[in-house]
């Protein structure tokens, strides 16, 4: 098993276990270079109104070619199941993807999900044939319910969106992963490369991030750091770490010591 291979979302193979957002960059050019440096082959995008008053504006997808990247539309900014369902249907009707990163936000201050509405929207969109990737919190019971509702993956947060606080509850993530039969992708909360590695070492199948890269002083360099850290964490997970011991254990043989 390679570090980068074998993640499948709704039957679609992903080359990279890192999915990146496209918000908060200084320019489309910077977005493009950072996405390239991240090694991600799937990017998430927001669904918004076309600016009908100014048609000279450039479009993100002129820089992020849908022929090269898997485009994952999201329902960011939706606060009810109805809004999220409406956004998902509009996104799919463009023909860009059957995948939807489903977000139903419960509170603008902490951006935690409204899990009740999320579950309702997941059930309906799965019935309509969507490949649903729901953003939820690190609750093992909700993760199971989303899986049972037909979600293609479950995406628990590691910490609040954009907070950069890192993996706040590795134990919950472990429980979620041990009980899941769909991939678990950590979505939100990662602050720096070591956070990504920790999540991958725990056994997560992938990580989705935006602010940790786009908000860094040097986003392109951080994108490369995240690329490496996700792969390093995956390799370490597959390799099986040594047990933690309280006392030292010499790594050189005692035999043959000069006397």
């Amino acid at each position: 098993m390679s570090a980068d291979g074998s993640l499948k979302v709704g039957g679609i193979p992903f080359r990279s276990r890192l999915i990146v957002g496209t918000g908060k960059y200084a320019s489309f050019e910077e977005t493009k270079i950072a996405v390239e440096a991240s090694g991600a082959d799937c990017v998430t995008v927001a669904v918004r109104r076309v600016n009908i008053l100014n048609r000279s504006e450039e479009n993100l997808l002129d820089y992020i070619d849908p022929a090269i990247y898997k485009i994952l539309p999201n329902t960011a900014g939706c606060y009810t199941a109805d809004e999220a369902i409406r956004t998902a249907r509009l996104a799919r009707s463009s023909g860009i993807s059957d995948m939807i990163k489903l977000e139903v936000i419960g509170d603008p201050k902490n951006l935690f999900p409204d899990n009740e509405a999320l579950l309702e929207a997941t059930r309906l969109l799965v019935k309509e044939g969507f490949i649903v990737l729901p953003y939820t919190n690190d609750d093992p019971i909700m993760a199971k319910k989303l899986e049972e509702a037909g979600a293609a993956v479950v995406m628990p947060l590691a910490a609040p969106i954009g907070s950069g606080l890192g993996i706040r509850n590795p134990y919950n993530l472990r429980i979620i992963m041990e009980n899941a039969s769909v991939p678990i992708i950590v979505d939100a909360g990662v602050g720096t490369a070591s956070d990504a590695t920790i999540a991958m070492e725990l056994g997560c199948d992938g990580i989705l991030m935006n602010t940790a890269i786009a908000g860094a002083k040097n986003p392109i360099q951080m994108a490369e750091a995240m690329n490496l850290s996700v792969r390093a964490g995956r390799l370490a997970y597959l390799s099986g770490r040594i047990p933690r011991k309280l006392y030292a254990q010499a790594s050189s043989p005692i035999e043959g010591m000069i006397e």
């Binding site: 957002g21 918000g23 927001a46 918004r48 109104r49 076309v50 999201n74 960011a76 977000e103 951006l111």
Partner: peptide, 14 residues
Amino acid sequence: IEIISFFGGGADVG
């Protein structure tokens, strides 16, 4: 009428 397209965004952008 609503006409939508795709824009930069990751997790919730408000």
